[in-house]
Amino acid sequence: MTAGRVLPARMDPLSPEVVDDPYPTYARVRAAGPLCRFGPASWGVTRHRDVAALLRDRRLSNTFPEDDPQFRMARDLSQEVFRRIIPTRDPDDHSRLHQQMVRAFSPGVARRTAARIGALVDELLTPALDTGRLDAVADLAFPVAATVVCELIGLPAARTRAEVWPRSAALGRAFTPFLPETDRAAVDALVWLRGYVRDLLDGHRPDPDGDLLDRMLAVADPAEGVEEVVDNIVFLCFTGYETTMNMVCTGSVALARNPDEWRRLRADPSLSGTAAEEFVRYDAPIQYTARLALEPIPVGDRVIRPGRSVFLLLGCANRDEDVFADPDRIDIGRRPNPHVGFGGGVRGCLGAALARVEGAVIFERLARRFATVDLAAAPVREPSALFRSYASIPLAVTPA
């Protein structure tokens, strides 16, 4: 380091105050520069311009070395699983399966599910019309998101609620960096779900014109065989609903805490689509995405060296004052809204189109069916540096 040169700001993603509310820390590191020190041999990218560009930069890889300290949790669970799933593979390696999964979660498919989503939301909201109580997690966000993704994958409905849901909820911790020790529930969930999907695939045969499971079997790597399909379907059991669920949760909290915006949505439910986008920007469901530098990458007045981990701080970029007017304020009609909450490029969120449709339908139904939505008790967070997750959001509601 050149004499007198000031080191970039540091942030600890695992510190309790950051896990609880990362945005004050984001403001500090973003003001200090485009890079912050984020962990062992790691950089965090703080500003929207750089994050948006690097999301599409092929000099960054999704494949990490086996001894990378950030991903020891995934290795403890199953190194093979972690290496097989699409997010940890580069585009040339994963294009076969990725094309099939994109097809299953395409914008067209998402739009065609809107009526099904609306019927499901209406069913789930009906009890609250009588009780005046609604837990936005257990009674709405999770069952909608999990039901829809399981139906799109083709998992049998009879076993989904009782057996797949609880395990998919625990599965997220299997794919989270920075975890200090193995999580037994995540291990057990991963083992059970792999066996469940493997048994389910016994009834399918490779068919490029069949359902999602048939199509994935048809393009599976011969060297990996069915195990490649198993692990990516297991990953879909989690990733296919996590973004939607967290967006509905953070949006519900935002509306309850911002009554003017709730009244605005009530007066014009057609704002539900832009509201969903704003909730993704304001409190990003996934706070960052990890990459590995393959080549020297200039960011600001520094160069990220090859072999360094690079964390693109989506939640930080979404509050960038140079891009978003009054970024710490909710504006459900915000236009334009170039947030990066769904990532970008070929590694962008697979379920983004579905999340947009589900969010628009859910918030439109909430606005039409309830006159008031207030917090009945303090929301309970699921502590995570990566996800903005909630265990419970007790709401008091009154019928419209």
Rank of each mutant, 00 (worst) to 15 (best):
D231F: 08
P24A: 03
Y288V: 07
W262S: 12
V230E: 04
L14D: 08
A396Y: 07
A360E: 09
R281W: 01
V310H: 02
Q79A: 07
R215V: 00
G315A: 14
A169V: 06
D374C: 15
M247F: 02
G154Q: 01
R291H: 09
R305N: 02
P16Y: 02
D328K: 04
A360L: 07
P222I: 00
R37P: 05
P296I: 09
L55G: 02
L200N: 13
R72S: 03
S106T: 06
P383K: 02
G4P: 06
E66A: 12
P91R: 05
D231I: 07
S78Q: 03
V18Y: 15
S42R: 01
E242N: 07
A52S: 14
P127C: 02
L375R: 15
R116W: 08
S15W: 14
L190I: 00
T131H: 15
T160Y: 00
Y282P: 03
A186E: 01
G39M: 00
E278D: 13
A74L: 09
P206M: 08
A9N: 10
G343Q: 01
A189E: 09
N232V: 04
P269S: 06
P143E: 05
A290K: 01
D139L: 02
R75I: 03
A53V: 02
D207N: 08
G343I: 04
V310S: 06
H94L: 11
P22I: 02
R319W: 04
E242Q: 12
G210I: 03
R5K: 13
A378L: 08
R159C: 11
W165R: 12
D76L: 11
A220Y: 01
P34W: 00
M101H: 12
A145R: 08
T126Q: 15
A189D: 11
N232G: 02
D21T: 03
